[in-house]
Design a protein around this nucleic acid. Structure first.
Lengths: 340, 340
DNA sequence: CTGAAAGCGCTTACAG
DNA sequence: CTGAAAGCGCTTACAG
């Protein structure tokens, strides 16, 4: 039924070995033979079977992408597809394929990781999640399976990872708000389970210190990182009688909610309160007011992540690599106070 | 190095065939033998190699998901990941894996489709894109490769597909706007390349006709389906001196832009102009004003899409199946005119 | 209930 | 420059 290397061999009057070598463009096969073989392949509409090839070569050219916590809204965040695009782009160039698995709970995660690492289908894993204390990480290290984390993990010197410098991101944004005249700056959406929010908070504190602004813990509001609770977080603050002059939300989606809440209380953005987000979602520039944010270059995060993974797969000498992707502060109306 | 079925066979003093059968839980193997074999597998930490299994069984349990037009913003739309979640959910239950490919241009698409269909890795294809006149479709039909399209294709009776009833969606939304007192209703974002927008427009026209409202072509504005041009489309209309009492945008993201434009011109939503979108993105409920939209149940689109594909792969007798996923009209403030 | 053997479609030392 | 043979790690008729 399906034409195999043996069919081609017969038709070309050569051995299967020779066909295989022609396919691999081995220098040991004469040009003439190659030409003949390729012509026949064309005629007979031959395509190599990658499964058979994988078995023989003991290499599948497939990596797995693991998306954690898909029951939460995280997976719906615009930067996830963007990361995936980056991964796909470099993977394609390197003739790698991408197996994607989304995981809801820890139990499922254990099963899927086990499957992906033991069944021989996948050569390495790209993990999209910077959850603190993920038990998968020590497991992967133990079995020495190549993997890269997108997002800074807690044990940053013992794994491969790629991320932005989120401390710097938090710092820059806070400094920006200080520069436009804010002193009491709220920080919304810290989630202890996500390094990224902790890092951004760290940068926030650094900037305050550097500018001799006393830290007010009341201005820091915990919450889910990516969720529709920006409104609630802001409300919590206002209900306590606190009206900050600036607000930094850990994600644009949170910032949108916060702005809505401020508006309802009759507070104008940016005149009364300057508001900024992070991650620069597509809508941010079209929001009212256009939202100051940080472009994290999600595409590059994915692209670089794949590169690191490929390195880890191919490299003889094991090492732990990291990559820091640059970001851009994007100032828009939502933080443009008069006089600044 | 890696433990194989032969290692287990030796350790258990049986033949590889028996181990294989135990693995498949064949009734032809005694309970006692199975127990012994499983115990040894446990001890030796054995996992079957799915590549070898795939080759022997001639079946990989892998499907491909093809995402078209990833250079456009489409891929970043929140409903794509949601569809993927639906696919993954059912695939997981059926022990299928998902290979994902995103495609930018037609040239790349041809290569990837060719690869996915000929290399033997993938048993069927799920195509995310309802682009009109996609050359891939006739090709897949010709080679009789199982596939399902998410989105109604032009040749709807000759392929498997799953979609909402977009005519009905357009109709219901328009009727809703008419009910709240709108008569001159603009329709933004028709893109002839996407069936979904054409269908929604069709429903719009049906509703007008049914209510004896004359069709005004000037109110229909073409544009990219999913893009940040809602502002521009609305502006185009207003610049022509047209101020509709209602606006339907082909996507929530477009509606956000349209609202912004209206606001800048001093028009209030919904008091002066009622505005509605489609697809119910996460932000819609938190927008100011909360946006009337339609929940298309993207998760179900993906889940059902996989079911159809699995059917197509397994079924002896070939047929063309379709599935229509229900939707929900979600009325929010943006269309709540006074008195309605 | 179990085994020996052939086969899935390739690749690759080994030999010439 | 080319081929015969073994092997990748499974499954599955065939035979008993």
């Amino acid at each position: 039924m399906r034409v195999t290397i043996n069919d081609i061999a017969k038709a070309a009057n050569v051995s299967p070995s020779t066909v295989s070598r022609a396919l691999a463009d081995s220098p040991r096969i004469s040009k003439a033979t190659k030409r003949k073989i390729f012509k026949i392949m064309e005629e007979m509409n031959y395509y190599p079977n990658v499964i058979a090839r994988s078995l023989a070569r003991k290499s599948t050219n497939i990596i797995g992408v693991l998306v954690m916590g898909t029951t939460e809204k995280a997976f719906q965040h615009p930067f996830f597809p963007e990361i995936l695009r980056g991964v796909a782009s470099v993977a394609y160039k390197n003739e790698y394929k991408i197996l994607i698995s989304s995981v809801t709970d820890m139990d499922e995660q254990r099963k899927i990781v086990n499957d992906l690492t033991q069944s021989g289908i996948t050569e390495g894993l790209l993990i999209l999640s910077s959850g603190v204390n993920d038990p998968t990480i020590p497991y992967l290290k133990e079995i020495q399976f190549p993997f890269v984390i997108v997002g800074r993990p807690d044990n940053e010197n013992e794994v491969n990872w790629v991320d932005n410098d989120n401390v710097s991101i938090g710092y820059q944004m806070t400094r920006h708000l200080i520069e436009v005249g804010c002193t009491d700056i709220a920080f919304l959406g810290v989630d202890k389970k996500f390094m990224v929010t902790l890092d951004r908070l760290k940068g926030y504190k650094m900037a305050l210190k550097e500018n001799n602004i006393p830290l007010n813990e009341d201005l820091i509001v915990e919450g889910k990182f990516v969720d529709d609770t920006g409104y609630d977080l802001m409300k919590k603050l206002l209900d306590r009688g606190i009206v900050p002059s600036g607000v930094i939300a850990c994600d644009d989606l949170l910032a949108f909610g916060a702005i809505k809440c401020l508006n309802e209380k009759g507070l104008r953005v940016p005149e009364d309160v300057a508001v900024a987000g992070f991650n620069n979602v597509p809508l941010s520039s079209y929001f009212t007011p256009p939202l100051t944010s940080v472009d994290i270059n999600a595409f590059s995060l994915g692209a670089k992540g794949f590169e690191l993974l490929l390195n880890s797969i191919k490299s003889e000498v094991k090492s732990f690599n990291r990559a820091i992707i640059p970001f851009q502060l994007i100032v828009r109306e939502s933080t443009m106070k008069k006089g600044s």
